[in-house]
């Protein structure tokens, strides 16, 4: 297993207007999986994704990634864990408009203290993988939505992370582009050394999942995720 989450609970707010975003959620992910977490808006998907990737501290429960109990780490060690292990594709990309596409992609390597030139060389290769080699000197806002998404994916994979996290990868893309991107990810980026977790409620891309977990009301719907689900 690359990731095991055990009895994760999380609530927001105090006393009277407390909302339970997650209630004792447990699941595991294996290498080579492209796991989908699906469910209606507000069911706790983003919250769960944040907790298993070391961004949001759970009220309760453990997350073990590659044998490390991540919520036992201090904040700097946790940042180091995210940097070394996880590749993020945020829902709204969060690319830097004042850097070139190439520099944007190189950021995780630069944060890992790789030399500048080496980081850019790696970033260039990765841009080739996502088919944007000729756009490397443009600022991201000069690219189309689909291209920006691919830049965000390039940034997420440039440092070869073990676990890739996508939140709503097809949101704000038209259906065709969204499907193409997910197909691309499955074909070129998924491999036996890593796992990909995708949160979505876009049923048009369910066909690419190796497994689907369904969430409702902060819980995993019993029986889902046991097998491929279409």
């Amino acid at each position: 297993m690359i990731l095991t989450a055990t009895k994760i609970s999380k609530s927001f707010g105090e006393a009277t207007n407390q909302t339970y975003a997650l209630r004792e959620v447990s699941f595991a992910v294996d290498f080579g999986e492209m796991l989908y977490i699906v469910g209606p808006s507000g069911s706790g998907k983003t919250t769960l994704l944040s907790i298993i990737s070391g961004i949001l501290r759970p009220d309760d429960g453990d997350v073990v990634v590659k044998d490390v109990d991540i919520w036992k780490l201090g904040s700097d060690a946790l940042a180091g864990f995210r940097l070394q292990t996880i590749g993020f594709v945020f829902q709204d990309y969060h690319l830097f408009p004042r850097l070139t596409t190439l520099e944007n992609v190189a950021i995780p390597l630069i944060l890992r203290r790789e030399p500048w030139d080496k980081s850019l060389t790696e970033a260039r290769k990765t841009l080739q993988v996502v088919g944007l080699a000729e756009k490397e000197n443009l600022p991201p806002y000069k690219l189309s939505g689909g291209e920006q998404k691919r830049v965000a994916i390039a940034r997420a994979i440039v440092a070869q992370p073990d676990l890739l996290i996508f939140d709503e990868p097809t949101a704000s893309l038209d259906g065709d582009t969204g499907r193409k991107i997910v197909a691309f990810v499955k074909e070129h980026i998924l491999n036996a050394q890593r796992a990909i977790i995708i949160v979505t409620h876009d049923s048009r891309i369910y066909e690419y999942a190796t497994r689907i977990i369904r969430m409702e009301d902060g819980r995993i719907v019993p029986g889902t995720g046991a097998d491929h689900e279409k």
């Binding site: 961004i55 700097d76 940042a79 940097l83 969060h94 995780p108």
Partner: peptide
């Protein structure tokens, strides 16, 4: 700010 936030999420330490 949101870019600094993204850097933080990706794994930049506060000191950095």
């Amino acid at each position: 700010l949101e870019h600094f936030g993204a850097l933080k999420a990706i794994g930049a330490k506060s000191g950095e």
